[in-house]
């Protein structure tokens, strides 16, 4: 359909962003996500007509995770859910274990996350997030809810107070899958000292000061390595 026409002009954007200089660096995170989203919507719209053969997020046997979630949402497809289970359960369990849960506790948390995936499949919006992002936020929120009794403060996307995102020009569309491929490659090629601290920031319940204390590194070093890692990954969203 219009997919090719929409994705090709995407390359013109990063050069413009690079030229814009320092002021744009902050905006880069937001911008790259908006761009990534635009293409995801495009992908979702044509899902009914053709299988997304270039999907990055796939099971070991090549089935698109987004299409599986969609099948669960539309048809309560148990077979699709089984495939999601096989792919996601070991990863969510690994995430819970990385955060300090014992094997059995991690398995229990991961089972609850899988049930939430079944229940909330309708709420997965490929225009807003990749499947792994969506599952990550569900697992993260489940963990917080288990740890704390109080309500978890969260943004309500339907809040009338919400200041909406600025509308995106049609030509600022880049290829979603390519962005996700670049992100994953960037994670794999992070310098080890950056990768380690980034993992600690995500997977250990510690402030940067606590990470500094645990690693015997100066706080400034911890902050700058995490910042460098994030900047590098942020750049990977863009086609540079």
């Amino acid at each position: 359909m219009s997919r090719i026409a929409m994705t090709l002009p995407g390359r013109s954007m990063p050069a413009a962003t690079a030229r814009a200089g320092l002021g744009m660096i902050e905006a880069g995170w937001a911008r790259s996500l908006v761009l990534a989203r635009a293409t995801r919507l495009d992908t979702a719209m044509q899902r009914d007509s053709a299988p997304d053969v270039r999907a990055v997020e796939t099971t070991a046997d090549g089935r698109s995770l987004a299409a599986l979630v969609d099948a669960v949402a539309r048809n309560r497809d148990r077979q699709a859910f089984g495939a999601l289970f096989d792919h996601l359960m070991p990863r969510v369990k690994a995430y819970a274990m990385r955060l300090g849960a014992s094997g059995p506790a991690a398995e229990e948390v991961a089972q609850e996350v899988m049930l939430l995936i079944w229940r909330k499949a309708d709420s997965f919006d490929p225009a807003r997030a990749t499947v792994s992002t969506w599952v990550f936020t569900i697992a993260r929120n489940k963990r917080i809810d288990l740890l704390r009794r109080e309500n978890r403060p969260a943004l309500d996307p339907g809040d009338p107070m919400l200041v909406p995102d600025s509308p995106r020009p049609a030509d600022e569309t880049i290829e979603r899958d390519a962005a996700e491929i670049r992100l994953r490659a960037a994670i794999r090629t992070l310098p080890p000292e950056q990768a380690e601290l980034l993992s600690m920031a995500y997977f250990e319940d510690r402030s940067h000061s606590a990470i500094a204390a645990a690693t015997n590194l100066p706080l400034g070093t911890v902050k700058s390595r995490i910042r460098l890692a994030l900047d590098r990954l942020r750049r990977s969203f863009k086609d540079e």
Partner: peptide, 15 residues
């Protein structure tokens, strides 16, 4: 937008 990017990084790290 920054936060969504960080969540996407979190998803990729979990993966």
């Amino acid at each position: 937008g920054k936060l969504q990017a960080m969540e996407q990084v979190g998803g990729a790290l979990m993966e």
